[in-house]
């Protein structure tokens, strides 16, 4: 009961902030709503007893990545003339396409959830022998080893690339 209430409240917040992110005119405010959004998502993770994920969500997204967004927004002069902001018509169909894609995806997820409820996951979380952190670690280094390593490789490449871009003369 309490959990449901918390879930719906949090969901309202998440959706509300998401709408605010895209509708606010002030870019810095938009970034701030994004932070709030991420924090609400983290709270949702806590509700699912995935504390590790929640903490990482806050640490990486809210505390790290969005700070960089904020840097960019604050430092790069975004005050372009208004005609630049008026979306040229030719981009509209991309937006429609993407929206449709997301809608289809959401529908698929809902449909799949209706057909096969996610039972085993809930059963695992109630298993108290291993705690949350250890389970994430086990999964990452066993079942998901290859995606994990690929992701770290990708990050390394990104890092090197960033250094090369930033530093012209090596």
């Amino acid at each position: 009961m309490a959990q449901s209430i918390a879930f719906y409240v949090l969901s309202t917040f998440i959706l509300g902030f998401a709408v605010l992110v895209v509708t606010t005119r002030n870019t810095v405010h938009a970034v701030l709503f994004l932070v709030l959004n991420f924090l609400a998502v983290a709270a949702l993770y806590v509700l699912l007893t995935a504390q590790f994920l929640a903490v990482i969500q806050v640490l990486v997204y809210a505390g790290g990545i969005v700070v960089l967004y904020l840097f960019v927004v604050m430092l790069v002069n975004l005050k372009r003339p208004p005609e630049d902001h008026m979306a040229p018509q030719r981009h509209n169909w991309i937006g429609f396409g993407l929206s449709a894609l997301v809608l289809v995806e959401l529908g698929a997820i809902i449909g799949y959830g209706a057909v096969a409820p996610a039972g085993p996951v809930g059963a695992q979380t109630s298993d108290l022998a291993l705690n949350n952190v250890e389970r994430v670690g086990m999964l990452l280094y066993t079942d998901y080893l290859i995606p994990f390593e690929v992701a770290s490789m990708l990050l390394l490449v990104a890092m090197v690339g960033a250094i090369i871009l930033a530093k012209r003369e090596l």
Binding site: L75, V76, N77, L165, A166, R168
Partner: peptide, 12 residues
């Protein structure tokens, strides 16, 4: 703080 990549951003 400002970048030196020249054409990408205007530095002030």
């Amino acid at each position: 703080m400002t970048t030196h990549t020249g054409q990408m951003f205007d530095t002030e």
